[in-house]
């Protein structure tokens, strides 16, 4: 009985914040921008789902492609129909980890620069990328920011010669997430 008590007590002595190390969102923001001689193309997606585990530095993102909103409806149609083929490849994903990971990530006040490496899958093509970003825990929420460049050609997205003046060879992607904490208990509760 005494040892049971010690066992129970030792559970309480586990590293603090274990239950709060995971953060997730379903309403993250990803925007992209490309500038070509004839026109600029810009789109935003506010339905990005992400989960980040600060205890391990690992993360996963899913991006529903049809949720990208363009300023011009024709661009949106062409994006989905001709380029990313959203019917065939409904979502882009990223799974990765923080390279310069150290315990207590995100705990110090202020944004913390991180290097992230992982697999980015767009249009059914998986590629290993590294990028930089910042993580910050503020008011019990994890703020995630990152910027990187994607080349459509790397993901087997072909741009016909006829519209090459309209579409840039590289696209700047901006990620901005505000994630709430997920405890193991909450994960069990959610149906």
């Amino acid at each position: 009985m005494k040892y049971m008590l010690i066992f129970a007590l030792s559970l309480l002595l586990l590293p603090p914040g274990r239950a709060q190390s995971k953060y997730s969102t379903r309403a993250g923001l990803i925007t992209f921008f490309s500038s070509a001689p004839l026109e600029d193309i810009e789109a935003r997606n506010t339905q990005v789902a992400a989960v980040l585990d600060l205890s391990t530095g690992q993360m996963a993102f899913t991006v529903p492609m049809k949720a990208f909103q363009f300023r011009r409806s024709l661009m949106q149609e062409h994006f989905n129909e001709n380029y990313v083929e959203s019917d065939k490849y409904p979502q882009a994903t990223f799974t990765g980890r923080v390279l310069n990971f150290q315990p207590g990530l995100g705990q110090p006040a202020g944004p913390q620069a991180v290097q992230v490496e992982g697999d980015l899958t767009i249009h059914g093509v998986k590629r290993r990328i590294t990028t930089t970003g910042t993580l910050e825990v503020k008011n019990n929420q994890l703020l995630v920011q990152s910027k990187f460049v994607v080349a459509p050609a790397d993901y087997n997205i072909r741009i016909p010669a006829l519209v090459r003046e309209n579409i840039a060879k590289s696209v700047a992607v901006t990620v901005a997430l505000t994630c709430g904490p997920v405890g193991p208990l909450q994960a069990v509760k959610s149906k």
Binding site: S24, A49, A50, V51, D53, Q58, M59, A60, F61, T62, T93, T95, G96, R97, G118, A187
Partner: peptide, 9 residues
């Protein structure tokens, strides 16, 4: 692993 995080999502 990271893939489990993705599955969880």
């Amino acid at each position: 692993a990271q893939t489990d995080l993705l599955k969880e999502l």
